[in-house]
């Protein structure tokens, strides 16, 4: 189960007004709202929890071949701890409890499911090619034979000369930033 999410904080602050009436209530459980509102920096916590939910949404959508859906409240963040530029927690979705890790920089948050083996953050939009490069190196496959396609649910998958490699990965981009998460020892 692999998912990741990157948030360009400067852009998020511009694109969304988290203090808008009803905004938090649509996305977060009451416990999550308390966590956010009691934090030293509520806005940062809005986007931290959001990125955790998004990462696990991508992970379960991939794992269970789910059609896209829009209901962030079904992803419940628990045991979130923030410590010197890092955060960790668990996101529950139905029967699954997925551990997640985040890195917090001054202007970007990157969150990955904890089973991620390789991750990458870029200030450019080049994560797609960097992901292919990484797989090419690790698997000893020529880069030009690798491709990314999307299934009917919109979930991307990796192909080698047209065959699905069954390698779970996740790509994310927001504003100037892009990122990937990848694991080669899961199917």
């Amino acid at each position: 189960m692999i998912g990741n999410d990157i948030i360009d904080l400067n852009l998020a602050f511009k694109q969304s007004n988290w203090q808008r009436r009803g905004f938090l209530q649509k996305i977060f459980t009451t416990d999550e709202q308390d966590f956010i509102l009691n934090a030293e920096n509520p806005e940062l916590n809005v986007w931290l929890l959001w990125s955790m939910k998004e990462s696990v949404y991508k992970a379960v959508q991939r794992k269970y071949h789910l059609e896209p859906f829009n209901n962030p409240k079904r992803f419940v963040c628990k045991q979130v701890e923030i410590n010197s530029g890092k955060a960790r927690g668990v996101v529950c979705f139905e029967e699954d409890a997925c551990e997640i890790n985040s890195i917090l920089f001054s202007d970007v948050i990157h969150t990955c499911t904890a089973n991620t083996e390789f991750s990458f953050i870029s200030e450019n939009k080049n994560s797609r090619i960097r992901l292919l490069q990484k797989i090419s190196d690790q698997k000893n496959i020529p880069l030009e034979s690798l491709n990314i396609s999307k299934n009917k649910q919109g979930v991307p998958f990796l192909t080698y000369r047209g065959d699905n490699l069954q390698i779970p990965f996740s790509l994310s981009h927001h504003g100037d930033y892009s990122a990937f998460a990848l694991s080669l020892n899961l199917s």
């Binding site: 998020a12 694109q15 969304s16 808008r20 009436r21 009803g22 905004f23 649509k26 996305i27 959001w50 998004e54 896209p68 829009n70 962030p72 919109g154 927001h174």
Partner: peptide, 17 residues
């Protein structure tokens, strides 16, 4: 909204509000 208009997922909440 997401595929054709590239509304970001947080703004989808604004659309609903």
């Amino acid at each position: 909204f997401i595929k054709d208009l590239e509304v970001n997922s947080a703004n989808l909440v604004d659309v609903i509000l």
